[in-house]
């Protein structure tokens, strides 16, 4: 398949997209978990907002961070388990996932 051919068929493949919104303080820890669990890439966005805990410990660096991860279902599940185990009890953190289709699955560790 030649990627420069405008008429080549689009080969959409299903993967999972996980969004993590967490307090700023957890950023380095979460990214460390992602690296260890075999996530190949992610996007970090500074964000602010309000939740049921509604406090910010380190407001001088921005309130929250949003981390976007695309990976295989098993990897996303492993990440979700790890974050649930570590941070759900006492920290501000939200996870949600959805199925998405991508064009180059090998970039995300899928086929």
């Amino acid at each position: 398949m030649n990627p420069t051919d405008p008429n080549a068929p689009l080969n959409w493949r299903p993967v999972r997209h996980l969004t993590i919104i967490a307090e700023r303080l957890l950023k380095d820890r979460i990214l460390n978990h992602l690296d260890k669990l075999g996530v190949s890439g992610y996007t970090v966005i500074e964000s602010e907002g309000r939740g049921d805990r509604s406090f910010v410990v380190d407001e001088w660096q921005g309130d929250n961070i949003e981390i976007q991860v695309i990976a295989r279902r098993e990897v996303i599940d492993a990440v979700a388990r790890k974050l649930r185990e570590r941070y759900f009890a006492h920290h501000s953190i939200i996870l949600y996932a959805q199925d998405v289709d991508v064009l180059r699955p090998e970039k995300y560790g899928a086929q």
Binding site: E23, L25, V57, D58, A89, H90, H91
Partner: peptide, 10 residues
């Protein structure tokens, strides 16, 4: 606050 938040999250 940062140290306590991480060290004593409860």
């Amino acid at each position: 606050p940062a140290a306590v938040r991480l060290g004593l999250p409860e």
